[in-house]
Simulated scan of single mutants.
Amino acid sequence: MEEVNRIKVVLCEKKLTSKWLSEQLGVNPSTVSKWCTNSSQPDLSTILKISDLLKVDIKELFVREYKQYLLSKENK
């Protein structure tokens, strides 16, 4: 089963493009494309910047079920 890339998913959820993200970070669009296809990954400082730009908790970029986990904690 192919792993779904969280950066790609969050970009889609926020209705943003990888081109937008590359412009915000000042990196080549092909770099973001590699992140979104799991052929390479950003370093930790870049992941922090991405989470700030996308206005999500950094954990959301790593854990597929993070939103569901938070919702389940709120309901208890």
Rank of each mutant, 00 (worst) to 15 (best):
Met1Gln: 04
Glu2Trp: 03
Glu2Gly: 01
Glu3Ile: 03
Glu3Trp: 08
Val4Trp: 13
Arg6Lys: 10
Arg6Glu: 12
Val9His: 08
Val9Met: 09
Val10Ser: 02
Cys12Tyr: 12
Lys14Gln: 07
Lys15Thr: 14
Leu16Trp: 04
Thr17Cys: 01
Thr17Pro: 01
Ser18Met: 01
Ser18Phe: 01
Lys19Glu: 09
Lys19Leu: 05
Leu21Ser: 02
Leu21Gln: 05
Ser22Met: 04
Gln24Thr: 09
Leu25Glu: 04
Leu25Ser: 04
Gly26Leu: 04
Gly26Trp: 09
Gly26Pro: 00
Val27Tyr: 07
Asn28Asp: 08
Pro29His: 08
Pro29Val: 00
Ser30Gly: 02
Ser30Trp: 00
Ser30Met: 00
Thr31Ala: 11
Thr31Met: 12
Ser33Lys: 05
Lys34Val: 04
Lys34Phe: 02
Trp35Val: 02
Thr37Gly: 03
Thr37Leu: 01
Asn38Ala: 08
Asn38Asp: 09
Ser39Asn: 10
Ser40Val: 06
Ser40Thr: 12
Gln41Ala: 14
Pro42Ser: 07
Asp43Thr: 09
Asp43Met: 06
Leu44Ser: 09
Ser45Gln: 05
Ser45Glu: 04
Ser45Ala: 03
Thr46Asp: 08
Ile47Cys: 03
Leu48Cys: 09
Leu48Tyr: 10
Lys49Val: 03
Lys49Ile: 10
Ile50Met: 06
Leu53Arg: 06
Lys55Leu: 15
Val56Asp: 07
Asp57Glu: 10
Ile58Met: 09
Lys59Trp: 13
Lys59Asp: 12
Lys59Ser: 15
Lys59Ile: 13
Lys59Cys: 14
Lys59Phe: 14
Glu60Lys: 14
Phe62Asn: 05
Arg64Tyr: 15
Glu65Trp: 11
Tyr66Gly: 06
Lys67Ala: 10
Lys67Asp: 12
Gln68Ala: 13
Tyr69Val: 12
Leu71His: 10
Glu74Arg: 14
